[in-house]
Design a protein around this nucleic acid. Structure first.
Length: 319
RNA sequence: GGUGCCAUAGCCAAGCGGUAAGGCCAAGGUCUGCAAAACCUUUAUUCCCCGGUUCAAAUCCGGGUGGCACCU
């Protein structure tokens, strides 16, 4: 493990469900420490997806430097391991400038990758291997693929539900491509701890989910006022594969039908907005589950102002 | 006023005499390269109410209540 930033005992990661106010806290923390913000969000890495991903405003970005935002164009791919590599570089650079990196975002997988020091399979798994398995899956279903994984890497297979085709296929693809089982890779990954000491913070909504859901619903309405529809229209006007990851983003994927058939149809627009709220609530629920059992996460009081919470974070991370 | 149709979980809904499908919502989870994704689990001792027929009724019969449609 490397040294923490000078004057601190750890790098803060402010995580939590969508619309929980984590960005405000992170920005305040940057302001009072002179730190720089690193986003930890799988959708804010896309350029042009701004209001729907609740990206920091231009003004906020002017006040506080933001990193790991606007990294790629819609249609391009980006994985956790890409994130991890770039993020670690950013952390190094910010610390090199004598500043505190403040990590903030809701993508649980990215947060955990950082916190647990996960090292992903570092031998390439060629697309052909994966594509071939998907072809097999389309032809004969998942059963045989699952059985093969079961015989080759039982721990991995038993750990997965058969219907979770993505992971079943990845598990087998890793073995086919590298000759080492997924389980072996994971075991080796666990040996190395995190790169830096991190402390996680989360605004606490555990007891009042209704308040969080209400915040979500209201924020979606606000996003519509801020021009979400226009942004989505732009995304749909691009000549990119509809299967691209950017079309998984909540706030955009729900407009698929609207632009396909009904553009201008009021009912369809209403349905899309309803779905954005619903999907956001579902997402928040999954995020709550993700963070629930991270035992050393420091809970922040949702009733306090973002400044007070930022100060609390500062207290905890100070050397 | 008359006639017809309907009444099943928070919502939609199957069932047509043999012991309550399914979907949505909600809740609880899983996760080591798509993660705002993908996947899993749970959720009606009871079918509007009262009576009857039957070994057996959400299912058939009678009455009530409520809703919808049409007629005068």
């Amino acid at each position: 493990m490397r040294e923490p930033p000078k004057g601190y005992k750890a790098i803060p990661i402010i995580c939590g469900p969508t619309a929980s106010g984590k960005s405000d806290i992170a920005i305040k923390l940057c302001e009072i420490t002179g730190g720089e913000l690193i986003s930890c969000d799988s959708m804010q890495i896309y350029r042009h997806l701004d209001v729907g991903t609740a990206k920091a405003s231009k003004e906020e970005q002017q006040k506080v430097p933001h990193h790991m935002i606007d990294m790629i164009d819609p249609g391009e791919d980006f994985s956790v391991s890409d994130y991890l590599r770039r993020c670690l570089e950013e952390i190094g650079e910010i610390m090199g400038r004598g500043k505190l990196p403040v990590i903030c975002g809701g993508t649980g997988q990215y947060v955990s990758a950082l916190r647990d020091g996960i090292r992903y399979v570092d031998e390439p798994v060629p697309d052909e291997v994966t594509d071939q398995l998907y072809e097999r899956y389309n032809e004969e279903g998942i059963d045989k693929i699952y059985e093969e994984l079961l015989s080759v890497d039982p721990d991995c297979a038993l750990n997965l539900h058969k219907n979770n085709t993505r992971r079943v296929i990845r598990g087998l693809a890793v073995y086919k491509a590298t000759g080492k089982t997924f389980t072996q890779w994971n075991r080796e990954s666990k040996k190395s701890g995190p790169e830096y000491p991190f402390i996680l913070f989360e605004p606490d909504y555990e007891d009042r989910r209704d308040i969080l859901y209400d915040r979500i619903n209201r924020r979606v309405d606000k996003m519509m006022d801020m021009g979400l529809l226009k942004e989505a229209e732009y995304l749909y006007s691009l000549d990119i594969n509809r299967k691209s990851t950017c079309f998984q983003a909540i706030g955009y994927k729900e407009f698929g039908d609207y632009f396909k058939k009904g553009a201008g149809d009021k009912d369809m627009l209403e349905k899309a907005v309803y779905d954005i709220k619903l999907n956001s609530r579902h997402y928040a629920k999954r995020q709550l589950t993700w963070y629930r059992y991270i035992d050393d996460i420091v809970k922040l009081d949702r009733c306090l102002s973002s400044i007070d919470n930022a100060e609390k974070c500062l207290e905890v991370i100070k050397a």
